[in-house]
Design a protein around this nucleic acid. Structure first.
Lengths: 218, 218
DNA sequence: TAGATTGTTAATCGATTAACAATC
DNA sequence: TAGATTGTTAATCGATTAACAATC
């Protein structure tokens, strides 16, 4: 594998490649060409080949890509073949949904504990884990050393909680808070932002209306 | 306003600009320079000015940007000054969270109805709306003409439901299904994908480990 | 006026596309 | 072998950064 430094744009496409290839794999497809894959992805075939060649290339001239092998390589690149442990911090409505129904195992992630500050939920079991008091996080993290914290607290509490997570030595946060956490320079932070997404849609909707009214369809 | 065609990269930054400026506005900040804003955003001052100049520029030499005016312009550009109506389709756990606690009004969006196929939830009230049978969507849409459908159904049902939404003439979907819907060429689709986000974090975590082990800190 | 800071132009950098030799 | 399709090189396109004249 070339270790040059993978372009950001390529990394951003990796999850979608994996989704496409996973679908092909599930439908027992044996091989796929860059042309076919490019259709599924909505990009050019040239780009598919260029992207894969960043990692050394997984294809065979005249044949294309073996789906099974391609899937394995993408899983390896994405780190899905590693086993990571995660804790969930913030067991409100969103946190509880994640505990109950998100398929962490599919991503090589083991959810080993959940934390909250609300006495009403502390001690209850949701999904497969018991919810613990957040003030036990520090001693817990010393023993179990989780790879990831899933942050599902309200925006107000997010930076403070994130600091705690970073302080106890957890190296990454998957955050649903949708705001800067203030620890981005110390540990890895990946955001799922509902509001950023909605704002982009709002923008596109407005633009489309403006364009439509300039060139009325008749 | 220049109507050249705003670069995609600029559009992707608009929500974050708005968040920053909203924070400044709330803390009664009167003016802000591109340098200050660039620190908050984690980008260069040059880029801030370049970005705003796409829309004609909102600043004043020697002064910077008036926060109140900048906020207004960003709201206008993002379409938040428009009033849009939305319906929610899929009232499972995630759908119900959105009904109960997402602040749609903040985004100029009025949630006017919710739909599901499950008899157990049809007829119940969640948040401010009553949940209706999905088979009433068509007649409903003819009368109310919603601007947006929020899609919170499971991945399996997503493409079929999306087709229905497009067929009844709703021009945009905010989707939590995290998979292609098959209507992207007919109407606007904006995705919130938990899995794509988690996969990116998984990748970054793996890369960091590899880098760390190459250059051990000692 | 002098200092500050914009908007814009030009230079650099990175990402995408096109073309084709290599080869299965 | 002939056809297909990759991986890679070169060309194009778009986005970011640097520099500075304009001007508040």
């Amino acid at each position: 594998m070339k270790n040059e430094q993978i372009p950001k744009a390529v990394i951003a496409r990796l999850p979608r490649y994996y989704r496409c290839v996973e679908d092909l794999y599930r439908t027992n497809c044996i091989r796929v060409s860059s042309a076919t894959l490019s259709n599924l992805m909505g990009i050019t075939a040239s780009q598919v080949r260029q992207d894969f060649s960043c990692f050394g290339g997984f294809g065979l001239q005249g044949y294309g890509y073996n789906v099974h092998y391609l899937r394995y390589e993408l899983r390896r690149i994405l780190g899905l073949e590693n086993k990571n442990t995660a804790i969930l911090v913030g067991c409100g409505t969103l946190g509880q949904i994640l505990l109950k129904s998100f398929d962490f195992e599919n991503f090589g992630i083991f959810l080993i504990a959940a934390f909250d500050t609300n006495p009403d939920v502390i001690g209850t079991q949701v999904g497969f884990v018991n919810i613990m008091d957040l003030n036990r996080l520090e001693s817990f993290a010393k023993i179990e050393v989780p790879d990831m914290a899933i942050l599902a607290v309200s925006r107000t509490g997010a930076p403070e909680t994130a600091r705690l997570i970073a302080d106890v030595g957890i190296p990454s946060i998957w955050s649903f808070a949708g705001c800067p956490l203030g620890v981005e320079d110390r540990i890895l932070v990946e955001q799922v932002s509902f509001t950023d997404s909605l704002l982009q849609l709002s923008y596109r909707l407005k633009m489309q209306r403006e364009t439509d009214s300039e060139t009325p369809s008749q």
